[in-house]
Design a protein around this nucleic acid. Sequence first.
DNA 1: CGTCATTACGGAATGCGTAATGATA
DNA 2: TATCATTACGCATTCCGTAATGACG
Lengths: 307, 307
Amino acid sequence: MFTLEQVRGFVAVAEELHFGRAAVRLNITQPPLSRQVQKLEEELGVKLLERNARGVRLTPAGAAFYDDAVRLLRLAQNAPDTARKIADGWSGTLRVGFTGGSAMHFLGGLLTRMSVDLPDVNLELNELVTSRQLKSLTSGDIDLGLGRPPFDHSQFDNLLVQSERLVAVIPVAHPLTHLRRPLVGTDFAGVDFIMHSPSQARYFHDLTTVVLAGHHVQPVHTVSQVLTIVELVAAGRGVALVPESASRLAISGVRFMPLIDDTPPVELHAVWFRDNTNPALPRLQAMLTRHVNDSYSASHHPKNALD
Amino acid sequence: MFTLEQVRGFVAVAEELHFGRAAVRLNITQPPLSRQVQKLEEELGVKLLERNARGVRLTPAGAAFYDDAVRLLRLAQNAPDTARKIADGWSGTLRVGFTGGSAMHFLGGLLTRMSVDLPDVNLELNELVTSRQLKSLTSGDIDLGLGRPPFDHSQFDNLLVQSERLVAVIPVAHPLTHLRRPLVGTDFAGVDFIMHSPSQARYFHDLTTVVLAGHHVQPVHTVSQVLTIVELVAAGRGVALVPESASRLAISGVRFMPLIDDTPPVELHAVWFRDNTNPALPRLQAMLTRHVNDSYSASHHPKNALD
DNA sequence: CGTCATTACGGAATGCGTAATGATA
DNA sequence: TATCATTACGCATTCCGTAATGACG
């Protein structure tokens, strides 16, 4: 196989049509250049140049090879740059997993910010429940997750990116809607209740359990999707606790009612595998930190880091 | 600059994900391969591979560089082939000059034959009078001409590709049309005559002069294009001598009449500069020779080598 | 301790630069 | 004879293969 040095030599000669000038351009002397081109021709089995005493001409084969040679050199010059850019994290691909419901809202702001701060980093998005996210993080199928606690801190690092209130969603005809104050656990005693799935939506399930704090309710359904829960409430099947952002769902027949202030918030975290080597990941982490700080300081919506 | 050998080494490792197997594939031992990849990484300033005791993984930068590396190797492998094909004359470009009028008919057959015998050779066509063809041949602007004798045999080689009869073209109302025999020079004595331009169509001018052989005619026009001549004849301005193929021109008001058998034929030659180095030229010459022979032996139209 | 990858080292090959030679107008 | 390109030759570098070492389960 021929050498890129030989190709560089040939291209220089083909452009200067003069071994001397070409050698100067390459910062070498003529003899090595002459030999480079000879070797190249020998390697190809093709005469690329027509030499005569006062200069050089390209053969037809030489003219054709020149085109390919230029392409070759351009590729050989650019390839390292793109590799370096990726190694530095300023380019490449990040695969992100996110939970179906309320992470959506956060993703919008994230994508907008990405297109400004990391325009050459491509994002691949996968909707996954938190448990699947964690598995995919360790297996290397995704680089970053947007999910709900808890996380195994021996393997994962995380960053709180969104925090919102938990609210009660209640059919408009329900007696609870007559209360003119934030609700407390006691208010739900004996009420028909739609529970989050303990396997598919463990975080919400546990949160709800904490709020109810032993007050006995009547579980009438166990559901994984927030949207489904709100629809069941609208159908009058019961009452439920959902994140405040669910009130943006345009579903009639329900009322969203606040809970008392000491109710734990619904948190969304960015989470990543500590051993992940994707160079773009630190860039995204830094961007997320900046982004969250910007939102907290500049906006008056401390409940949501990205509003 | 890195080496193609290094790239080959890296690609092998990237595909095998194992230095040992990659080395076997490249017919070298592991240590040189290891050093090749190290040098490449050093050259790029980028870690391409993540080594651990039981194997190798690609870094994101390595995965990106792998794509470029494969492109690079493919290009490096194909470029010599195309160059060789051109050097052998089986590919590339031939620039052909041809005289306006009757060479057209020949060109049709030539192009058809080219598409079968030399499908990868591209033809660039230029309409040029013979004198310009010869200049362009020596300057290298064209590789082959289709023109009329004479040629300077010290510089040019040529091949007769088409030979046709000279005929008289006469207005239908002209007294000469009453003759029921081939015409001779004497028949044109004192007749109004349309002459070919001695500069632009010297060959036809000289041929006509030979046929008339001193019988005095009345030159009423001097014209370079055969088509124009026939149109002038149709307009009754005089009589002229043109190649037989001109009878294919659909112009009414004229009669084409044969001349006696010993009239010199109108010849079309392929002509080329002996110093031309285009490797496709010998291929075309060989094809033309075959083609002319085929036509002479297979057809019953000995007057036109390509009918 | 077995599996890989890397470092150490000696010999062969490659490739530069300087100097000499060849070809051509 | 002047201008280029090529060949000759010596020295430094590069690069292979074999052998030894190191890292990690």
